[in-house]
Amino acid sequence: MKRIKGLIILAIILIALPILFPNNYFITVVGTAVALHAVLAISLNLLMGYAGQISLGHAAFFGIGAYSSAILTTQHQWNPLLSIGAGMLITGIIAFVIARPILKLKGHYLAMATLGFGIIVSIILVQAGNFTGGPDGLSDIPPLALFGWTISSDFHWYVVMSTVLLLIVWLVNNLIDSRSGRALRALHGSEVAAEMMGINTTSVKTNVFVLSALIASFVGSLFAHQQAFISPDSFSFFFSIELVTMVVLGGLASTYGAIFGALVLTFLPELLVVFEDYEVMVFGGILMLMMIFMPQGLFVALENLISRLYRNYFNPPLPVPASDGENHDVA
């Protein structure tokens, strides 16, 4: 039931915003970017938050999807929908091949390996100029058309990205509550104990790595069609770090936390434009303060605050347990 409730609230917010603020730049343009980042953060959170496997190369899969779509539609005149599928297939194969050797590593070593992968991909994007257009990127990517409806305006894209976001939230929430989801969360706690439950930890880790890469590739393709122009800058190491920051800031192992992290990290720079030269400094300062005072993540902290206020308002505060050494529960 809790699964559905969050989804409905999210849907209401996504529908209400453009009605309340029609033709608002912050809704249609920034809002679309938030939704896109949110989907990426959710997919990374599957890997980092739930399965406990860090990845500093998530932007690479986003980039492979984007470039697959861009190259196939501009240089080979493929149908955009078909090229999205082809991009996911390519990404899936790459993710599957590197998953086994990479996921044998743990902690810092895993971070290093994924970082290396991300850097290799971004070097290829810059160097393989014949295909990728090099540092200049690729332009004139055709717009996406669905059943004869061409997605062209900012508002169209807002609708598409919001729908994708809702679908992914629904998918991930169902996954996490399922048998495979429990296996995922179990291996986060202890791989040895998970093996003792009969969980094939290698294959579970591989599966979640591939799934998370597939989602990233899918939104990468959407991104290419939305922007009509892509360059390697959008898929660099720095974007991977930004995604990790979204996940950690929002709260690990929380899907809505990942959305929240994406919201803050996408919106804040827009609002901080007023600080002009000091924008980056203020931005960094805010992130530091958030992590110091809300280490468990923004969303979780907010959730706790709301439930505390709610309790205090509707119920008398709970009595403080006696601390005189008596009445100890014998467990």
């Binding site: 048998r179 429990r182 296996a183 969360r185 179990a186 986060h188 706690g189 202890s190 040895v192 104990a193 093996e195 003792m196 439950m197 009969g198 969980i199 094939n200 930890t201 192992a253």
Partner: peptide
């Protein structure tokens, strides 16, 4: 190890090794 479990040997490890962040119910389901 995960195939041995399938053949019918279940191990209750030293120090219990419950999945701490998971609920009691989820632990049992695992």
């Amino acid at each position: 190890a995960h195939t041995i479990v399938r053949s019918g040997i279940c191990h209750v490890p030293e120090g219990r090794q419950v999945f701490a962040p998971l609920s009691v119910d989820d632990n049992l389901r695992l």
